[in-house]
């Protein structure tokens, strides 16, 4: 059966990159007695798939991955068993058995919410956020491998809220086709105020990762 795990990642582990973090979880499983299903062949590996890579330097309250385990496993014990093996800063929050026909974590990701905190200078105002919301289009020149492309940032932003002069909440497209990096939005937003993002370092915390339900509403990846 397939199990979806939700976890949070804070502290110094935010510097551990995505691939190494996957290996970290594989080793953690090996330290438990959880019977994970392996692929066949000469170098069998665990069948684990992460929903959305988390960038280096980003913390999170809502990360997900799917793992296939033996049908006899008691999933209720997973949270405790895994937390006994976690490094400080990582906490397993929930483990649920995936419904039969559920899409895998990676394919179902539609959006992600973030909290942005500018830790040096405070560039945010309510007026600036309102200006962003009221503008029908906010153009942004994206540099790609082949050249430059102008996009309308607003197509990829589902929610943006002012929290303080240092802090805002955003919910943006995180699907494989339209993923918007929080840094891109911050850059576009500060440009409206003629500010350079380089002068305003910020922390990013992913609050949760979402899929669309049958009514096309955004719901966390562990809600069925």
């Amino acid at each position: 059966m397939k199990v979806r795990i939700k976890f949070s990642k804070h502290g110094v582990l935010k510097y551990v990159g995505h691939l190494d973090f996957m290996r970290y979880f594989q080793k953690a499983f090996r330290r438990t007695d959880i019977d994970v299903v392996y692929s066949k062949g000469f170098s069998p590996h665990m069948i684990i798939s992460f929903a959305q890579p988390l960038g280096v330097g980003v913390e999170s309250d809502g990360e997900y991955f799917d793992v296939e385990v033996n049908d006899n496993e008691n999933v209720d014990l997973f949270v405790q068993k895994l937390n006994e093996q976690m490094a400080e800063g990582v906490e397993v929050l929930e483990a649920i058995v995936l419904p039969e026909k559920a899409e895998n974590a990676m394919a179902s990701v539609a959006a992600a919410a973030y909290e942005i905190e500018f830790y040096k200078d405070a560039p945010l105002t309510e007026k600036l956020i309102k200006q962003f919301i009221d503008s029908p289009t906010v153009e942004y020149v994206k540099k790609t491998k082949t050249g430059e492309r102008t996009i309308n940032i607003k197509d990829f932003v589902f929610d943006i809220r002012y929290l303080s002069m240092r802090c805002m909440y955003i919910c943006v497209d995180a699907s494989s086709g339209g993923n918007l990096k929080p840094a891109t939005l911050c850059d576009a937003l500060l440009k409206l105020d003629n500010k350079n993002i380089e002068d305003y370092p910020f922390h990013v915390t992913r609050k949760d990762t979402y899929k669309r339900n049958e009514n096309s509403e955004l719901v966390p990846l562990n809600k069925f």
């Binding site: 804070h10 502290g11 110094v12 582990l13 510097y15 551990v16 990159g17 190494d20 080793k27 280096v56 330097g57 093996q85 490094a87 400080e88 800063g89 830790y119 370092p201 922390h203």
Partner: peptide, 27 residues
């Protein structure tokens, strides 16, 4: 959580493989 790092964030974010320097490994 009481995790201290000697290197400031802007330094860690500007170098290759910052995870080399963070310690706090398992065991």
């Amino acid at each position: 959580m009481n995790q201290k790092l000697a290197l400031p964030e802007d330094v860690l974010m500007s170098i290759e493989k910052p995870e080399r320097y963070i310690g706090h490994e398992i065991n």
